[in-house]
Amino acid sequence: MTSLPDMTTPNVAGLARDAAAHARPVDVPTPDAGQEAVFEFLLRIGDNALILGHRVSEWCGHSPVLEEDIALANQALDLIGQCQLWLGLAGEIEGKGRSADNLAYLRDAWDFRNALLVERPNGDFGQTLMRQFLFDAFHIEQLRALKASADPRVAEIAAKAEKEAAYHLERSADLVIRLGDGTEESRARMQAALDLLFPYTGELFLDDATDEAVAEAGIAPLPSSLKPAWEQTVAAVLDEATLIHPGEVYQHKGGKRGVHSEYLGFILAEMQFLQRAYPGATW
C-alpha cells in the first residue's frame, strides 16, 4: 500500500527544495542544432505524451472492467511521467526558467505541438484502444530511434520511455486483435474506429523544417523514416485482427505546428483550470 508523505515531519518540503536547489548541473556537449528547433521538437514529443496521457486518464473510474481501468490509469501515468521528462528538458534548453509544469499548465492551445491523433476524443472503448495502438506503434519506433540521439539527455529519456512504450504496444495490439477478431459487434466497432482514426496518422510522419534541423544535427530521426516500420506493425496487427486497412485516405494535419481541432481547448480548460484560476497554487 502506498504510504502518504508524513506532512508533520519537520521541514520535509524545505529539505526537498534544498536538494533541488543544489542539483548539480550536468555537463553535456551542445549538439549542433538551433536551440529553437530542439525546443520545438521536445514540445512535440512531450505534448504528445501529455495530451494522450490526459485523454487516457479520462477513463479512470469509467472503464468497462476493473483491469482495464487500472491498465489505462497506469498507461496514463507512464505518459505523464515521460511528458515531465521531455518538457523538463525543453524548459532547460529554452533557458527562460520555464519548468515542465509551466509548459503544461500555462501555454494556450496554439502553443501546443501534439499531433491531432492524440487529442481525438476517447469515443467508445474501441476508439480509445485503436488510437492507442496507432500511436504506440509509432511511439515505439520513435523512441527506439531516439536512443541513438546525439544529445545524451534525449537518448536517456528515450531509453527509459521505450521500455514502457513496449508494454503499451503489446497491450494495445493484443486488444485490437482480440476485439477485431472477436464478435460481430466488437469487430464492427474496431473497424469503425480504424476508419475514423486512420486519417489522423499521416501527420505523425510528415517532415518539416524543424524535423530537418534536428535530424541534420543527429538529435532525432526524420518522422518519415519511421513510417515503413510503423506500416509493417500496423499491417500485421490489422491482418491478425481481420480488420480492413483503410488504404490511401485523406490525412488531416496541423497539430505539430499549433493548428488544432476544437477538442484541444476543452482538454486544456479542464487540465489547466486550477493553475489559471489560482496561479502558483500548490499542495
Partner: peptide
C-alpha cells in the same frame, strides 16, 4: 526512477532524506 510516472518516486526521495537525516 523505476517507471517515469511512478508516483512513489517523490515519496522514495523523502524517505531517503528522512532516513539519512
Amino acid at each position: 526512477p523505476t517507471y517515469s510516472g511512478c508516483p512513489a518516486t517523490t515519496i522514495i526521495n523523502l524517505d531517503i532524506e528522512k532516513a539519512l537525516r
